[in-house]
Amino acid sequence: MKRWLPSPLVSASLWAMWLLLNDSLALVHLLTGAVLGVAVPLLLAPLLPPLGPVRRPWTVARLILRVGADVVLSGLQVAQAVWRVPRRPPRGAFVAVPLQLREPHALAALAIIVTVIPGTVWCELASDRSALLLHVFDLDDEAAFIEDLKVRYEQPLREIFE
């Protein structure tokens, strides 16, 4: 079964998404969605790195809650910064963050976290994975931002993946 459906949940999701996008349960859409649901995971399976063990489920739960709270708080901070533009424009800056993370899944999770939080953009990862270049919408203290990012996100990801 795993040979033909390496990711059954992904296959089912692709099939359901195809049906939702086409807003039809016609036979042609049912079959096309099924073919896509089977073919796409099969074609992409060689590109995925092997999954490593995920350790410390409580750390995963805490990280998810922390990211959720940070998304809300950062969204409010960005909105506040936008509203006060006439008085004080935001101080956008590029920040180079040194990384200790090397595991590909942990780096992917960090990329998702940084991207989902309003006011931060993942710009570049050094070829040796030693540093990350971010753009921050409104930066007060670069050293404090780097330390905060490392403690809030990198450290838990290292506990989970390494």
Rank of each mutant, 00 (worst) to 15 (best):
P50Y: 08
D70I: 09
R152A: 07
G75K: 11
T32K: 03
E159W: 08
S7M: 13
G119H: 13
V40N: 00
E162A: 07
D148L: 14
S7H: 05
D141G: 07
L149W: 12
F145I: 05
A69D: 00
E162T: 06
G119C: 14
A34Y: 07
I146P: 03
L125D: 01
H29E: 08
L65V: 14
E154N: 01
L107H: 02
I117P: 01
R102E: 00
P41V: 01
R129M: 11
D23P: 02
W18V: 15
G68C: 08
P41M: 09
R102G: 05
L132G: 05
T59C: 10
P89E: 02
L21N: 05
L76K: 07
P104Q: 01
L44V: 10
A131F: 10
C123W: 00
P89C: 01
L149Y: 04
L139M: 03
F137C: 06
G37P: 02
R129K: 09
L51Y: 11
A39I: 04
V85Q: 11
A69T: 13
L134F: 07
Q80S: 13
A34C: 13
A69F: 13
A34W: 10
T120V: 09
A39C: 07
L76T: 00
Y153V: 00
P90H: 12
P156H: 06
D141E: 12
A34F: 14
W58T: 14
A26H: 14
V114S: 08
L30G: 09
P49R: 09
R56V: 05
P49E: 02
W4N: 09
